[in-house]
Design a protein around this nucleic acid. Structure first.
Lengths: 194, 194
DNA sequence: CGCGGGTTTGATGATGCTCAAGCCCGGTGG
DNA sequence: CCACCGGGCTTGAGCATCATCAAACCCGCG
């Protein structure tokens, strides 16, 4: 990959640490570019998650399909977000989750084997990856608490507030599955809210 | 601190990396020992979380008190677990959560300022801390999904299975608040299950 | 025009909450 | 040693929230 192609990723890294030109080309040598169409899967549950994706444009969601076939979206990811099934990625065992593109999506791909090499080559990046994990954990904990302490309506209003961009990009039934309610109930709620 | 006093922590680290004697005494110089009684608070929401705790004996819970005063426990922690309000710890801003001892509890305390020093002194520990975060995130994600896809009964059975030790140590109403249900409903469920 | 994915609507019902009361039991003081 | 107290657990009646199911609707697209 050329440096210019992975510019968004470099910018992302440079929010936390600064990089020399030689480091930038090293990074470029570890990653790939991926282009996907609406509906494409970046990962199918049951397969091993062999890579982490950094979204440069478009939109994806990661979701769990339960025993009854009902989908529960764990997260949406847009520009400048990372996405993967961490558990599967770390252990290199079968994934529990699916990752699907909700629009034409461009990603920078960091394969499992290259991640180690990348971190060995530029140990300062550990810091960036750590921050990423910390942030994700904080958000997840808040989501657990919100799920218990707020009503569906309150959760929806909060979502609408914080993720207006996302709400505009995805079908309603996925928003419902993110909020932990049915599409029917979300529809009724929205009507109530005029 | 003497090395022998922090043995449980060293063992914990040595599951992932090996440590020289000089490193061990370095670690000992960064941490403190804490002893708390049942009911004591390791952290009160509103205050800054200035330390991370490694439990060597006893039991604590971290919980959120919502607008109405209802408590929602985010996690229990026993022997060999870390606990802190990560968000507050990282940002050094006021905590949203409380951490409370559910029994006499002994902890090894890693203060905020010493954490950096520790990681600088022994960079390999980054790896251990990263794993800790990864594990916590995986569990949190699963908990979100379970909250959406399982009934209260299923969640309880799963909890009873996985955390039998914890269930034995804590009052039922806290288990309920971990499961996201009321104490009354948990009581009724348990009766149903004979 | 008709098809299909997504959304809406309504009737019905389950899950789990609220409130209020009573109970159990270990601890403490008289 | 008993009485009482208080924290936690139980029980029950009534209720809110949200799910389920089935049908209709909407609208962009081939």
């Amino acid at each position: 990959m050329s440096i210019s192609e992975i510019e968004p990723l470099l910018e992302h890294f440079e929010k936390d640490i600064s990089l020399s030109d030689s480091e930038k080309s090293q990074i470029a040598s570890f990653v790939k570019i991926g282009n996907f169409r609406k509906g494409d899967y970046l990962l199918c549950s049951g397969n091993v998650c062999k890579e982490t994706f950094f979204i440069t444009s478009g939109c994806v969601r990661i979701f769990y399909r339960d025993q009854k076939g009902v989908e529960h979206t764990i997260n949406f990811a847009i520009k400048d977000w990372w996405v993967s099934d961490i558990k599967s990625f770390i252990t290199q065992e079968a994934a529990d989750y699916d990752i699907q593109c909700l629009a034409g999506t461009e990603v920078i791909i960091l394969p499992f084997e290259q991640q180690d090499q990348l971190l060995q080559a530029i140990p300062r990046l550990e810091r960036v990856f750590k921050k990423k994990l910390e942030k994700a954990l904080i958000v997840a904990q808040k989501r657990i608490v919100d799920g218990f302490s707020l009503t569906a309506r309150e959760r929806y209003l909060q979502f609408r507030d914080k993720y207006a961009t996302v709400e505009a990009m995805v079908p309603q039934y996925m928003v419902a599955s993110y909020l932990g309610i049915t599409k029917e109930f979300l529809s009724k709620m929205k009507k109530e809210l005029e």
